[in-house]
Amino acid sequence: MSKVFIAFQTNEDTRPIIEAILADNPHAVLDEQPAMVKIDAEGELVIKRESIEELIGRDFDLQELQVNLITISGHLDEDDDQFKLSWLN
């Protein structure tokens, strides 16, 4: 299985997002680098709107992720509730 990843700028907006991702994806690994955070995961990684909303206490639109996103790897499938990265092989 190949790894997918997602990276965000390190800032106050992304702190709860990263927390939610790590809670929802126990197999994910956090890699903190200067000014950025990269999350690697075998096979797939799922970001859930509800988990983020719970941590930030307001409605969250997953497209807001784009403001602080740095890069992704893997096929993306996004709808209103989740943002999923995966490799098919």
Binding site: P34, A35, Q66, I70
Partner: peptide, 22 residues
């Protein structure tokens, strides 16, 4: 690396551009 070298301006445009790259 720009962040590591204290170049706030470049990091910011770089990551701002990169947010489109995804």
């Amino acid at each position: 690396g720009a962040a590591y070298n204290g170049d706030m301006a470049t990091v910011t445009f770089g990551f701002s551009a990169q947010s489109d790259e995804a």
